[in-house]
Write a protein that binds this DNA or RNA. Sequence first.
DNA 1: TAGTGGTCTAGACCACATC
DNA 2: ATGTGGTCTAGACCACTAC
Lengths: 236, 236
Amino acid sequence: MSQPPAMPASAKALFIAAEVRRRIVGREWRQGDRIPDEAALAVTFGVARATVNKALQLLAEEGLLERRRRAGTRVAVDPARKAVLTVPIVREQIEAAGFPYGHRIIASRRSPLPASIARRMGLTAGLTALHLREVHYAGNRPWQLEDRWINPHAVPEIEAVDFRQLNSNEWLVRNAPYVRATMDVSAANADRREARLLDIRQGQALLIVNRTTFNDIGPITSVRLAFQPGHVMVAD
Amino acid sequence: MSQPPAMPASAKALFIAAEVRRRIVGREWRQGDRIPDEAALAVTFGVARATVNKALQLLAEEGLLERRRRAGTRVAVDPARKAVLTVPIVREQIEAAGFPYGHRIIASRRSPLPASIARRMGLTAGLTALHLREVHYAGNRPWQLEDRWINPHAVPEIEAVDFRQLNSNEWLVRNAPYVRATMDVSAANADRREARLLDIRQGQALLIVNRTTFNDIGPITSVRLAFQPGHVMVAD
DNA sequence: TAGTGGTCTAGACCACATC
DNA sequence: ATGTGGTCTAGACCACTAC
């Protein structure tokens, strides 16, 4: 039954994934149930086992199925509550909204790493690093605060760069590709300095993103972004 | 060159992905460069093209490569700044911290959908829906506020459920599997009611997660979670 | 129109966890 | 011990799009 009907000549795996998803949502296969094994489904759908495998791996990534060797494939009891967050590129975000992008360096100096940042980067506190603070503007309205620490050992060329001309993130992205990143999201009340820089009232709730990037050698940079009040990050 | 050395008998695709990643990070292949096509890499690494395909698709998902038919595969100019956020299960989170989990229903009634929620769910405002408000506790400390709207057409059985016994999310997860979800993250100052329920000062910054789930038929539920001040969501 | 990635197949062997 | 998913192969055809 349920032979793939007039297929778009490609997309069998997607068709099978959709059909399995339909059976789960339709409660035909219930949470915790074991579903037929790949070989059986391959026969059912009239495709190669590799195609079934691809379909089921998709659903497992999605969190709808749990797969274990020998134990078989089961409908997940609790579909994972996962979502992909994309940290927007400030400039693009502002320009997409139709405003001219601008930024201003508040501070740029070599300082000893505070313990909290050192911990994020896996370095020892007190190590001398480059500390940058910037404000990003949409037109003449402040839009986002950026507080960045850069590991000079990871990016020696950084010393020569003039960030008054260039957005630090854009330079890093082009010149120090990263392999791994950690990220967290929280909320904080704007302190007096932040309120002044963002032109808002002290105490307003800001969305905070902390992000640290690494390459094979070690940590590259750790940045704290403070978004304007009301800013919403949309996940897929 | 770079033949996979003494391989673990499986993981050729991962080995190739790692090697390509190394060449990118080592600036051997630079941002915007076109890399050899699949057939060539298959010869280079001494594997089947399907294996190279899998490796490159992995890196493309990761954001390190951009692939287009006919145009070939290029090193991404801006490695996507993506991270997977997982909304924790309240109960697990609290119990993992060693506290007894508890929850209290603040309100449970049928009300017309407000416009903002209706928009999220793709329904018309004013439609009668089930509105639940709960507080989740870690021991006797309030931990999280939940404000949930449920589409009764999607889940008719909901009317009979006694949520004083059961956490609404856990019931929904087991009884109304979803297929698609939207999610966003923001920050807000606690209003008077929220401050009272969370036992904090009015105005403190709260991390807010809005999440709406859908199945093939339509929207199931839309929930607004307000986390305690200081709460951090970690992404991978 | 031709080169590139996307997908599928049929078969094989392997790793692993349960039975 | 054995059944299940994980992965690989060699070959094929197709879809897209830059040329």
